[in-house]
Write a protein that binds this DNA or RNA. Structure first.
Lengths: 227, 227
DNA sequence: TTTTTGTATTATGTATTCAAAATAGGCAGA
DNA sequence: TCTGCCTATTTTGAATACATAATACAAAAA
């Protein structure tokens, strides 16, 4: 099973694997802001040579996850509140566009999938399973973006999202905020189901505004804890 | 004069120079869609080794300007009408946001600079100097984006813009469309000057819609000419 | 004790080498 | 002639080696 696919599948370029690996580590906070990416150490950890690693680092730099210091290597980009706010503003704009397009372009299958994820998310909320809730939540937003059918939009959103997810891992949703977020999702789903573009746009914008506040608060809190 | 600064200035990493060089070549149509990037040839042309070149190619791939074919190198991404339309839709969304933010955040100096560029553009229009007009036009849009003060927005727009500029180089504006574009710019400048965000948003959206039509028409024409 | 300077070490930047995959061309057989 | 296979060449992928810049540290001088 899968043998044929494996044979057919070309091995992915090493540098791509490395990009994914490092991106995950950064997003999950395994590599913390300001941490230096020591090439020798990472090479040993990943069991590769410097060439693909360095290619990967250049890619991560264009994605904004690491910062290149000439002749001094790369460090994980700091999570500044201003950058986060800017990123979320842009993502809001993209979500708004995606919502509009999704209302027009989403297939019934797309909507069914989003609905399924929504119920899955409700289950995690009921169980107070925060990590799984976040995962589902992310997936729902991503599916709405994807339902827009605009490949460039999808790609751009994905890239920006990586930076926000970094903050998510330190966020501790208050029960109150969590509950209202779920309610907002109910409305979003309803608007999408009835393909009510203006309403969906408004709901996504509001949802995002709350998210901004929540993420920034988490950042502040974290900064305070660090100090 | 400048000696101290020059001493202080660190040399830019080679791969960045290469990225800029290749990006320019692609945007200006020197490297045409589908063209293979032969590493050996490019190394000789640029007088560098393969390592920084390959790092640059990876970066261009994440920017979407080239496509990586595993074990078969990289080719310049094709200019597909659908991708172009998708890109412009996203840029429209970003321009809309930028317009809003610019109305709130732009300094009088920013506005003065945009106004100056506007008059410069009018001069080029009067002289029917298309290339210089395009340059000015691009610059005005970029300055509006920059006046938003949102660094992430600026960065994202820049990246998307590279792909659109490629099409621009093959576009031959009709006199009629040219004239109306200039009129639209007059209104945009007026709205920005009076910091009328809703009006600016609407004007930018309309301006972009016309641009989409123009760019797509140019693409079609070019595709037809190629066939 | 503090500062400075020279040296050793380490890390990064770039070039080169080695390996593997793809392409091109030729040859045999139908 | 055409087809299929095989080899030779080219090209990319990855690793290693070399060059250069940054850092750490120690010794000497103020």
């Amino acid at each position: 099973m899968g043998t044929i696919e494996n044979l057919r599948l070309k091995r992915r370029p090493l540098h791509e694997e490395v990009v994914d690996q490092l991106r995950d580590r950064i997003v999950q906070g395994d590599l913390t802001p300001g941490a230096r990416l020591n090439e020798r150490v990472l090479c040993e950890q990943l069991g590769i040579s410097r060439t693909p690693l360095r290619e990967a680092i250049k890619v991560l730099a264009t994605e904004g996850l690491v910062e290149l210091l000439p002749n001094r290597g790369a460090i994980v980009t700091a999570l500044k509140a201003e950058t986060m706010a800017d990123t979320l503003a842009v993502m809001g704009s993209l979500e708004s566009l995606a919502g509009e397009l999704a209302c027009a372009n989403a297939s019934e299958g797309d909507l069914a999938e989003i609905r399924a994820l929504h119920f899955e998310m409700l289950a995690h909320h009921a169980r107070r399973a925060l990590a799984e809730y976040f995962r589902c939540n992310q997936l729902i937003h991503l599916r709405i973006i994807e339902a827009s059918g605009n490949a460039v939009l999808i790609n751009t959103y994905r890239q920006l999202n990586a930076n926000v997810r970094r903050a998510r891992y330190m966020a501790n949703l208050s029960q109150e905020r969590w509950d209202s977020a779920v309610r907002e999702h109910e409305e979003i789903l309803a608007a999408l189901t009835s393909r009510d573009a203006p309403r969906l746009k408004r709901l996504l914008a509001e949802h995002l505004a709350h998210k901004v506040a929540s993420v920034l608060a988490a950042l502040e809190e974290n900064a305070a804890a660090a100090a």
